[in-house]
């Protein structure tokens, strides 16, 4: 399992790894002594072989740079040029999703946050307030259980739960499959609730129009500095649970300042799903985005209709 976040799609491989590495290693390691790590059961301890720069294989060389010379002619080795983005496959699926959204007038947002920021409650409240004005559907990502999708379905909105298993984020392929199952009508709003994780989902484009990061005021104002990748990837930050501000020492201005250090273009809204504060602004942002998506699809349809009419006219003349 990944030492940072435990993620990975190929679970069988991870199982295999656990077996392979359960035994001791007899080769030298270069890490510093006393390297500690945590286990899922909460135990933290030092490991004699916790980091993995094996001398006999898989060495990582730092800073060799482009000047590093290969001499493929001296052996049977040859060089194969690759030049591919490691996340290229995900990005190709994301492009597919984005095309699908554009063709169907769907405004898709990817909601990202830590666990417990109030994403699902905010989502339920948003759907309740929007459901007479817009078609809304939800893709719910969690490691396990369909609890969140059940909460969404209770509002009457269609929802698909994606359980990522050991995975720490949704990827574009999973979302593509969820779309097949959801069969979204044209001109709808799709809310993708990502796995509660402020790190990994930052790197995975799902084809959404925007990432929206939700930070609750119970979390601490320096989270944008601690988890900069996510705040950098997002276009909008919702500062949630502001009804609790009177009971907390949370400095709103400082938090926003930190977030904009990471991402100068970040939009910020202060909301509370519980009291309803700020919800109007957030819902207006959503419906404005949806209107743009619908208008773009309509324009596309009109263009196609015009082309068909032109072709029919030509057929009539020539036929």
């Amino acid at each position: 399992m990944c030492t940072v976040c435990g993620c990975g799609q190929g679970e069988t491989r991870i199982e295999g790894h656990d077996d392979e590495n359960a035994h001791g290693h007899d080769h030298p390691h270069t890490h510093e002594p006393g390297h500690a790590h945590s286990h899922a059961d909460g135990a933290t301890h030092s490991h004699p072989h916790a980091t993995h720069f094996h001398q006999h294989q898989g060495d990582l060389h730092y800073g060799l740079g482009p000047a590093h010379a290969h001499a493929p002619g001296l052996s049977q080795e040859r060089m194969v040029r690759i030049e591919q983005d490691i996340l290229g496959k995900n990005n190709a699926y994301a492009d597919g999703n984005r095309k699908h959204f554009a063709e169907h007038g769907i405004f898709a947002v990817n909601l990202v946050s830590s666990p417990g920021s109030g994403k699902t409650t905010l989502l339920v409240k948003s759907i309740d307030l929007l459901k007479d004005k817009a078609k809304v559907a939800v893709v719910e990502g969690d490691q396990q259980t369909s609890n969140d999708a059940d909460r969404i379905r209770a509002t009457g909105a269609p929802a698909i739960q994606v359980n990522t298993g050991k995975g720490c984020h949704l990827d574009a392929h999973m979302v593509g499959h969820a779309l097949e199952r959801l069969a979204l009508p044209d001109d709808s709003l799709l809310m993708i609730e990502n796995v509660g994780n402020l790190v990994c989902p930052a790197a995975f484009d799902l084809g959404e129009a925007h990432k929206v990061v939700i930070l609750s005021v119970t979390e601490g104002e320096d989270k944008p500095l601690k988890y900069p990748d996510m705040f950098n990837a997002a276009d909008l930050m919702l500062l949630n649970k502001i009804d609790l501000l009177p009971y907390l020492n949370f400095d709103v201005a400082q938090c926003i300042e930190y977030a904009r250090r990471i991402n100068p273009k970040l939009e910020v809204m202060q909301v509370s799903a519980t009291s309803g504060a700020g919800m109007e602004e957030w819902l207006a942002w959503l419906t404005a985005g949806l209107d743009v998506a619908i208008a773009a699809r309509q324009q596309n349809v009109n263009l196609l209709k015009k082309r068909i009419a032109e072709l029919e006219a030509r057929l009539a003349v020539n036929g």
């Binding site: 940072v4 976040c5 993620c7 799609q9 984020h169």
Partner: peptide, 11 residues
């Protein structure tokens, strides 16, 4: 982050 996914992407 997500280094396992990256490793699988590389593979």
């Amino acid at each position: 982050m997500h280094e396992m996914s990256l490793a699988e992407g590389i593979l």
